[in-house]
Each structure stands twice: as structure tokens, then as C-alpha cells.
Design a binder for these strands. Structure first.
Lengths: 365, 365
DNA sequence: CTCACGTGCTAAATCGTTTTAGCGCATTTC
DNA sequence: GAAATGCGCTAAAACGATTTAGCACGTGAG
């Protein structure tokens, strides 16, 4: 191949550019670009020339420089994804769903964790992603208070903000499913873990649970509702915060008068933490206390006891969010302040059982 | 401010460019760039002009266009990170460590999962990242067989390849810690889960374990060693594969003659899966079988029973890997085929206990 | 013969920055 | 009085693509 010689004339190991091809083919870069991109303008170029171009591109292993293309086209084919913490299994599963749709659509994503930091730092994260010129954003469980500058969708957000799309779960249904199940098992007075104040799901879920409890005549006394991350106002975000807090709050619950027969935890992680605390205090689950989680993260089905939980289709939600941002970016989709609502599902496993009657329970401590 | 007027003359909502500033200040873009970047050349420019430039930049909210800077400087300040699967808690924790170092160093990263696909597809992943013009790569538990084109470090890799840096754990120490612990508890014949054939840790860990077993006179019969993902050769990667396989293999183990008193699992996930299988078969852990995991993922301390495991400092390994790529990219670090070795630690919890003697065990089934 | 149109391309602008070479002028040096 | 130096800045090229306007030439119609 004489071409090899020609190529090495310029540079050994660098990737070939359009200019290199142009020189080799004795054509202009314009022509080559037109042909390679199957531009309609290229219709006028005879088949034979086109073949020469394709052949050369193949031979040289030509790949367009992404940066240059981005500069010209003003799009990077990348999405910014902001999660509370990557190593949280719940978030990881959503990210996995986002990823699968994005990569299949020839997009990449930049991931950042805000670690539940202050709103001010959150602005920095958004600023970072914007500076990196992402085409759109997906915010996971993170509330945005002002209209975004880019196509944005938030997963588990509930604010109706202009320019924002939301993917949410039907919390009323979720609450009814879980509480009806507990009621059927005889539970009448239960404890509740509310979410972190920063988490965008917290308010809506609590509201729905309280409403369902009222209509089902289940008591959830304020004394027995604990807000995760609520009291210490900690800036530092421990890696295993979710389990850890469930544990601490399980203990806190036990320290109060133990007149509840079930716990509805904010998520599976805090449920598992609480179960650990109950075990350590000599209680059994579900014999002494029933526990219902939320999310159905992977471990839920393998934990001991297997966790009864309200399943969120996390992966699916990620995929939907990805689809929606791409639609907003590429299409003429209006979807301002739109909501996509997905259905929860109650997965009954082994962490819930018939309620003990109150008196014997008190002895159990 | 008359500037406001001047700005809106050109474009309302677009970000201001150097040219906009230049027009406004009646200077050239060159000068402004020089000043803003504190270039030594700018030393000749009088303090007063510099202040004018800074002030205007602040007022206009000027941010250099990342794409343009990248095109010129031929670096994107981004790293490609390739993991088997994002939602695997083990990988997620490593990613979290990578992220913390990278973001602190003003780098971002592109994450992709290869989902243990074929080597051919893996090439596609690398190709994708290369096309996206990352400055370097971190491969997690993924073997590379040829010298990389970019600064690359692999976590848990063991190939000594030119141009590759490795972050590995001391598997000999890990094996000795775990097996000595089991021996002390009276275990003499144990089962073993080997890793997935694709996982770069598999071989080294197995070798170390077999060596340690030999020197401690512990039997690990081939009949009782199972290779995860080894037999079905499945292309499809289930999300919860790790737990699931542990479960399936726990059952498989029970189906064989149950003449082992302990299981050393390849990782915590398969350990937890196996424990689930043992429970479902009516066995207790650790009373009937002891189980040792590997990794110490977050759930390990909260599982029931709490998992005894060989701790890998996953987050730390991620951070180290990030540090090393950045050194390779920016510095004159040679580090060709270098190895950074981190220390494992045995965390004894509740999934291991004294070995039952053989006969009574057999009855237990 | 002239005009229109089609064919097969290319020149040049553009995206937004960085950076090198150097210009024009004033002052100092010998 | 010529040469050197310093000052304060700028022109222009470069990074690697995309895309619009249009050129030069040939053919066919009227």
C-alpha cells in the first residue's frame, strides 16, 4: 500500500484528520465531510468518488474528532446526571437504567454526586455540568427550585416548574398498598421513617402515607415518625449513611415506648438498618415487629428476612428519564412541567407478619 | 449599566464569548485571554487594564467555552471509567472513590458498563471512550491484553502490560487471613466460589487461596469449587446477577455431598446469595455452615448474620487509581506496568463460627 | 447563438479559544 | 544620532470539523 507511506509522512501515531484524507484523495475536506455524512448535497457526487472516499476512510481508520464536531454543532451528545450518592444501591440502579438508554442512543453522561450537600453546593454541581456543556440533565431525587437553563428531567421530583419534566411514582397507590397489607395483618399503630429533608420524594410520600393511614384508620403518631438525617444536620455524608441511619433510628424507636407493631421505612436501606437494630435488641422480625421497605433494591430479595417492600421500577424510571430528556433535546416536544407517573407494586416477602397484640409486645422488651 | 445594552445588542440569552468581551472593552480577544489565564505574557499589561478585564468578565458572567478550550488544548479533562456493571454495589463503591478524587481535581468522567460482555464488545467500549476523547482511562476488574493508547490504570488487574498501571490487593495476605481464621475455628474442608472468568481478579485470588490452603492443610476439593458465571456462558447480564448466582451455587453445593463446613465466597454478593440458599434449605449460618465473603460492601455489616469478610478498601482503591491516571496524564511519571498494592483486612463478624463435626452435619440435611 | 440548467466539486466562514510572532511608539544607552 | 530596549498590545494561525454559496465546465433547449 502506497498509502501507508503517505500517511506516515505527516505523523506516525496521531489519528488521521479530514485534511489527511483530503490530501491523500486529492479532494477538499468539504467533499469528504459531505460524503461521509451522507449529506443530501452529496447526491451530486458520483458513486465512484464516494466509494473512493469511503475506502480511504476505512483504510485510514478515520474517526471524526468529537470535540471539533461538538464545537461546530454546539452539542456534545452528553447528559449530566446528578445523584445524591453513586454508591447508594438505590441510585446506582437508576443510573444503570439511565445508562442503558443513553448509550443505546449514542449519548454519554457525566455523573456527579452532591452528597446531600447544601443548596449552594448543589448550584456548583449544576454549574459544573453546564460548563462541561452537557445537552441536558437528569436530576435524581434532587429538587430544583428555579427553571433550568437546559432540558432537564428530575426523577422523583414533585415540583411543577417551567421547563422541568418529572418522573414520579404514584405515592398514593404505594401508600395504600403497603398500609392495606399491614392492616390486613392486624397492625393498627405503626412507626414511620420519613426521608431526608433534601430528598425530593420525602414530602409527597409522607403526605400520601398519612392520607392513606387516615382513611384506613391506622395510627402513625408523630412520636413514632422519625425524619432521616433530620436532626443532626450533618454536612458530612457517610458512605453507608442509609443503613447506618436506619440502625440508629431503629434504636431510637426502641428507646421510646415500644407500642407499635410495624415500621414503614422510607427506603429499603433504612429498613434493613432498623431490622439490624431490632435483632440486636433481641427482637425478631416479623414475629415481634413487621417492617415494610420501599424501593426493592437488589438486596431486598436476599436479605434475611426477605424484605417486604414497595417496589419502584428504578431501572425503568431511569430509562424513561433518559428517553424524556432526549426527546426534549432533539424533538419539538413541549413537555413543560410534564409528569410521567409509574406504578409501584407491593412485594410481599418475609419481613411482615401478623401483628402481635400489644400487651405481650411490651413484655418482649 | 450601559453594558447591559451592549450585551443585548448581540444576543439575549447566549453565554458571552471572548469576542463579546473584546468588543465591550475595546481590546483584542488575545489580550483578554492572556489576562484571564494569568499568562506570564500578561505581565506587561498594566494593572489597570487587567482590572478592567476582570471586572468585565465578572459582570458578564463570562465562562470559557469548554469545548473550544478542549479543541485547542487537545485535552478534555475527563477520564473514561469502565466497570462491569454500575449497579453492582462493589463497583459503585469504587466509582464513588474515583469520583471524589477526580472531581476534586477538576476532572469529570464518563462511565460505561460492559456487563461482562464479550471481548469484542469490550473493544467497542474502549473505542467509545477513545472517540469521546477522554484523557485517560480507569478499567475496573477488566483485563486488557494489549498496550493501551492512553494512560490507563486498571483496578484489580494483574497483567503486566506496557503502559498499564495496576491497583491490586495483596491476595496472598487476604487468603491467609481468611483461611487462618477458618482453620482456627476448626474448618478443614471448605467450598470455594471462584470469580467470573472475565473478572481480572479471579485467577490471582484463586491461586492465592489454593496456595494458602495447601500451606495451612485445608482441603478445597475441585468438586467443591464452583466458578461463577462459568457454566452457562450467558451473554445477558441480569441486574442482580451477583446475588442470584450465589444463591444458585449455594443450592448446587447442597445438591452435592455436603461434606464441607465452610464456604469462602468470591465476593460478598455471592456470599449473601449462598447464605440465602442455605437458609432456604433449612441450614443455619454459622451454626451449620460458616461463610466468608470478600470486599466488605456496605450491606455486609448489616446483613443477618453480619458477614465475616475480607475487606478491600474499595473507595481508597478508586481514589488511588484516579490519582495515578492523573499523574500519568500530567506528570512525567514513568509508572509503566507499575503496581500499587493495597492491604486487605479480615473483618470477623457473625457468619463464621466453630466447625461442626462432619457426621452431625450430614444429618442436618 | 444565447440562456438555463445540471454536474462535480471547492473556498471560505464559522464554532470559541490559545498562543506566537511582532508592530509601533517612546525612552534609554553609548 | 543610531541602536537597543521596553511597553502595551494585536494579528493571525491553529485546533478539526460542517456547511453555504458559488465557480467552471458541459449539455440541451429555444
Amino acid at each position: 500500500m502506497s498509502t501507508r507511506k503517505k500517511r506516515s509522512k505527516k505523523s506516525r501515531s496521531e489519528r488521521p484528520t479530514l485534511k489527511d484524507l483530503a490530501e491523500h484523495l486529492d479532494l477538499s475536506t468539504a467533499t469528504i465531510s459531505l460524503v461521509l455524512n451522507h449529506s443530501p448535497v452529496a447526491a451530486a457526487i458520483p458513486e465512484e468518488t464516494q466509494q473512493r472516499v469511503f475506502a480511504a476512510a476505512r483504510e485510514f481508520g478515520y474517526r471524526p474528532n468529537y470535540i471539533a464536531v461538538s464545537l461546530r454543532s454546539r452539542r456534545t451528545n452528553s447528559i449530566g446526571v446528578l445523584v445524591p450518592e453513586v454508591s447508594d444501591p438505590w441510585a446506582a440502579e437508576i443510573v444503570s437504567g439511565i445508562e442503558s438508554h443513553l448509550l443505546a442512543s449514542d449519548y454519554t453522561y457525566l455523573l456527579t454526586s452532591h452528597r446531600r450537600s447544601t443548596p449552594k453546593l448543589l448550584r456548583d454541581d449544576l454549574e459544573l455540568l453546564t460548563r462541561r456543556a452537557v445537552d441536558g440533565m437528569i436530576l435524581v431525587a434532587t429538587e430544583l427550585h428555579e427553571p433550568p437553563l437546559l432540558p432537564t428531567v428530575v426523577i422523583s421530583g414533585h415540583k411543577r416548574v417551567k421547563g422541568l419534566s418529572n418522573v414520579v411514582i404514584d405515592h398514593d397507590l404505594a401508600a395504600r398498598l403497603a398500609l392495606a397489607h399491614l392492616k390486613e395483618l392486624g397492625h393498627r399503630r405503626i412507626a414511620l421513617f420519613r426521608g431526608q429533608p433534601g430528598s425530593s420524594d420525602t414530602e409527597d410520600r409522607s403526605r400520601a402515607i398519612l392520607a392513606a393511614a387516615a382513611s384506613l384508620k391506622i395510627e402513625i403518631p408523630p412520636k413514632l415518625t422519625l425524619q432521616l438525617s433530620g436532626e443532626e444536620g450533618d454536612e458530612v455524608f457517610a458512605p453507608n449513611a442509609a443503613y447506618q441511619e436506619g440502625y440508629a433510628f431503629g434504636q431510637k424507636l426502641l428507646a421510646r415506648r415500644m407500642d407499635f407493631t410495624a415500621l414503614f421505612a422510607f427506603d429499603d436501606a433504612s429498613a434493613i438498618g432498623a431490622i439490624r437494630a431490632f435483632f440486636d435488641a433481641g427482637l425478631r422480625v416479623p414475629e415481634d415487629v413487621s417492617v415494610v421497605g420501599f424501593d426493592d433494591i437488589q438486596i431486598a430479595a436476599f436479605h434475611n428476612p426477605r424484605l417486604t417492600t414497595v417496589r419502584q421500577p428504578l431501572r425503568e424510571m431511569g430509562r424513561i428519564a433518559a428517553r424524556v430528556v432526549l426527546e426534549r433535546i432533539n424533538g419539538s416536544e413541549r413537555s413543560d412541567g410534564s409528569f410521567v407517573v409509574v406504578e409501584p407494586e407491593l412485594i410481599v416477602r418475609d419481613s411482615t407478619g401478623p401483628a402481635r397484640d400489644r400487651k405481650s409486645k411490651k413484655d418482649a422488651r
